[in-house]
Design a protein around this nucleic acid. Structure first.
Lengths: 149, 149
DNA sequence: AGACATTATATGTATATACATACATTTGGG
DNA sequence: CCCAAATGTATGTATATACATATAATGTCT
């Protein structure tokens, strides 16, 4: 549905103005459905994202600052998210021997199991939530990559 | 820059998977810069959005639930945002005479002044933050509108 | 009119973001 | 080697989101 109808706004001052609002609105649409998907599994979308980053490095550990770099929200707070995952038994924290300021984080087997369960579900979700065909999605990704310069 | 480089991920399982991540990442990119733009003026991005909704109806008042419908995050909390705006003298609250459950909200002249100051700044911001030409932005908006079905 | 559902708003709680700041450890210059 | 700067992590505070629930006012059915 056109954004103008969704938020009951007659028109936008420019396509650029509409695009900024459209990106916020579409992301909100996605995250609402994602949160509902993750909720029965006891993790939030950002916690899931950190788990995926951990799995990407498994069995090597990864430091908190490296997690931060790979997160979608750069200014967020990796250490608090790791703490949440640890409380749920999905991740482990260990002091880094070579630099005692750093903390090595690894995903646990429980964490890997959870991701394994979610993989198929997420794949189906991604296809069903995005009502575009293969070439359109590709086009969208290219435009977003270009948008950020 | 390609999303893969920005979040140091080698590849995505599908374009659909990438698109979901790309939308989150791009929105985060936008909101970070927007927040910095608004900060000197003492309002957050969502507070600004509510102010724009109020101006769109001025001089008519608008109820809290109508604000909610027009907000980007449908599940958010219009009444708390209105409270913040009231504390800053940017909006007023009045009991609706025809239905005492409802609350009529109007933007104050101070609120209109603030938006007036911001208008030009936002317009320039929207153009500079989106590094696409006119036809590409149009294409992006069409894809986003179609994506949500 | 009385009982009950519905609607409009407000509030409580958990999570996350954004930013400032604190603290310990490491690094590097003198 | 010692002190200052830089780095890695944690924490404090304000804001916002997501959802459940509370409360008052209104509408509806009999």
């Amino acid at each position: 549905m056109k954004l103008e109808e969704e938020i009951k706004q007659k028109e936008f001052k420019s396509e650029y103005n509409k695009a900024v609002v459209n990106l916020h609105f579409t992301q909100s649409y996605l995250i609402t459905f994602q949160a509902r998907l993750f909720k029965p599994h006891g993790v939030s979308p950002e916690q899931y994202n950190v788990l995926r980053i951990l799995r990407g490095h498994h069995p090597e550990p990864i430091t908190v600052s490296s997690i931060q770099e790979r997160m979608l929200n750069k200014m967020s707070n990796a250490s608090r998210l790791v703490e949440k995952l640890k409380q749920k038994g999905l991740a482990e924290r260990k002091e880094c021997p070579s630099d005692r300021r750093q903390v090595d984080i690894t995903i646990t087997s429980k964490g890997l199991d959870l991701l394994g369960q979610l993989d198929e579900e997420i794949k189906n979700f991604n296809h069903s939530i995005i009502k575009l065909d293969e070439s359109e999605v590709k086009q969208l990704n290219d435009l977003l990559d270009k948008l950020r310069g």
